[in-house]
Design a protein around this nucleic acid. Structure first.
Lengths: 110, 110
DNA sequence: GTCGCCTATGTCCAACATGACATATTTCGC
DNA sequence: GCGAAATATGTCATGTTGGACATAGGCGAC
């Protein structure tokens, strides 16, 4: 299909592509989960490197130990927002975060 | 204060540091917001580059045009989760994401 | 002009994430 | 092994985020 026509159809809200389109959602869900996992691991690494307990970090975040535990486990019930806030709170730099995100990508390749 | 002692106190849940400690929260909130903003901008850039309308992207996400609009505006009511999912759905690579995150950092320096 | 199309903004209420708490389970020094 | 500290897991009420819808604003083509 011509590129221009494809874009026109897509602009209209239609998904033009392979018949495996419906699989996309789950594929992207996986990518998302891996990303979350990578960043969750980042939280743990950084926390430990700082010599903080989960409770101490929770205190800093105004959260609770249980939530930090779930966070590091990349539990379904914890949002990326919380993970990211935690990373920033522990003092992660943009470079650190970028590193972990790329790690997620490389993990996929395996 | 000795590094080891400091860590011991922190393990116990105490925040040891400068008296401006209480400012930390808002500082980190700012960092977080800038990050969100940078990624939101990323969504818009990538969407436009793909020639998609907000409605089309919403369709792909199983969301609605209004949410995409709010998302690109980094509205308070949209989470980083949604932004990240969108980025992945549009086909952002880890490298892209890392780039935008770093952009947030550089923006801070200004 | 006005007609389409795209984007922005506001408001519902259902679904989900949150901190808090209680309670396992693991880990580690002794 | 014991005990204490750290971490893991479950549940709940309350606040936040979600898609949906309505509607307003913007912008180019005609």
């Amino acid at each position: 299909m011509k590129r221009v026509k494809k874009q026109r159809l897509e602009r209209a809200g239609w998904v033009v592509g392979d018949s495996a389109q419906f699989l996309r959602l789950s594929v992207e869900e996986n990518r998302f989960i891996e990303l979350k996992l990578a960043l969750a691991t980042g939280v743990r690494e950084l926390r430990e490197r700082r010599g903080l307990t989960q409770a101490a970090l929770a205190h800093r975040l105004g959260s609770s130990q249980s939530r930090v535990a779930k966070m590091e486990a990349a539990d379904r019930s914890v949002s990326l927002d919380l993970i990211m806030r935690s990373l920033l709170t522990i003092g992660a730099t943009a470079t650190d975060i970028a590193k972990w995100i790329k790690r997620a990508e490389t993990a996929r390749a395996a």
